[in-house]
């Protein structure tokens, strides 16, 4: 077992090294000098040079790479060129928006998807099933930014129930903040809920086809009881897997929605970082995101390894 964990650890470290190299090279290739961007049209060359020195943009690529990686190993993710604040601080501030948004979207989509999937499975092949499944197909096909736009027109501009975007901050009260995240969360949740409902439906159908369910039914358990007692619990495993996948997508994948609702989230920090050539922010945030996913994969690997000795032997 120890050797298995060790081999996974080596793979983890290698993945991180490769990922950091890939990210660094991409960032190096991005054209546009941060210093001259910040100083604008009329800046004299020596002013630009002074700022470059101040930002720590000098040195060979190898030196810069080692400095970046070395800093990260000590928990220093660099200082934003534009905001002049530590990247770690910026990320923490932005996560206060992105994390709740992702959680809210996930909660919404789960709350919608589980009953809908269950309902469709229980009505398999009947009109109820078709229409629900047809709707989920539609939900998957709708681009979420377009949906977001329609939501804004209806609920912010015409009805004025919600503001069109922005985020007041948690210190202004929980309710206003949750309200500000509602429309974006709905826009994000729609396609996720559709996917999840479909997964839920097929997972339930899969379980219903198993022998022990047939036995339960044969023993006289009602259809409803079978569904709730057995099918639901067992179908939750694939559903939870998908939810986990969706969560990591929602953290980084909300860029466009964050733009539509001008939310100060992590996605927009990266997007802004790219357009304003605040490359250290992009570099470090992308690395953090990749690290998070790789770490989760690693933990899942270990968990599977513990549960299934066959996997251990394979490696």
């Amino acid at each position: 077992m120890l050797s298995y964990i060790l081999s996974r650890l080596v793979a983890l470290a290698l993945s991180l090294v490769v990922a950091s190299l890939v990210i660094f090279v991409m960032i190096e290739l991005v054209p546009g000098d941060p210093a001259s961007f910040m100083l604008g049209l009329n800046a004299a060359p020596d002013t630009v040079a002074a700022l470059r020195a101040e930002l720590g943009l000098g040195g060979s690529p190898v030196e810069r790479y080692l400095r970046w990686v070395g800093g990260m190993l000590q928990g220093d993710f660099g200082t934003s060129y534009t905001y002049r604040a530590p990247v770690a601080e910026l990320v923490t501030a932005r996560l206060a928006v992105s994390l709740p948004l992702a959680l809210m979207a996930l909660l919404l989509s789960t709350l919608i998807a589980i009953p809908v999937g269950l309902y469709a499975a229980s009505r398999r092949g009947r009109p109820g099933d078709w229409s629900v499944m047809g709707l989920t197909q539609l939900g998957i096909a709708i681009p979420n930014f377009w949906f977001a736009m329609i939501l804004v027109v209806i609920f912010a501009i015409n009805l004025r129930w919600f503001s069109a975007g922005g985020f007041p901050g948690w210190d202004q009260g929980i309710w206003p903040s949750l309200k500000a995240l509602t429309l974006p969360a709905v826009a994000l949740a729609l396609p996720q809920a559709s996917i999840l409902a479909r997964v839920m439906r097929s997972a339930v159908l899969e379980v219903l086809g198993q022998d022990y369910i047939r036995t339960a039914r044969a023993k006289g358990l009602s259809r409803r009881r079978t569904l709730t007692d057995h099918a639901l619990r067992n179908a939750l495993i694939p559903v939870l897997t998908i939810i986990g996948l969706q969560f990591s997508f929602l953290i980084a994948g909300a860029i466009i929605i964050e733009n539509v609702f001008f939310l100060p989230g992590l996605g927009r920090l990266v997007f802004q970082g790219i357009t304003q050539r605040d490359l250290i922010v992009v570099e470090s945030v992308v690395m953090l995101l990749v690290f998070a996913v790789i770490l989760v994969n690693f933990l899942v690997d270990i968990a599977y390894g513990l549960a299934d000795p066959r996997l251990r032997r394979r490696s």
């Binding site: 736009m149 804004v152 501009i157 069109a164 922005g166 539509v260």
Partner: peptide, 18 residues
């Protein structure tokens, strides 16, 4: 001072009274 880069969002925010 509130920062809204997207023109559509600017329109919506103005119309919504934000």
């Amino acid at each position: 001072f509130k920062f809204i880069s997207d023109p559509t969002a600017a329109f919506a925010a103005m119309m919504a009274g934000d």
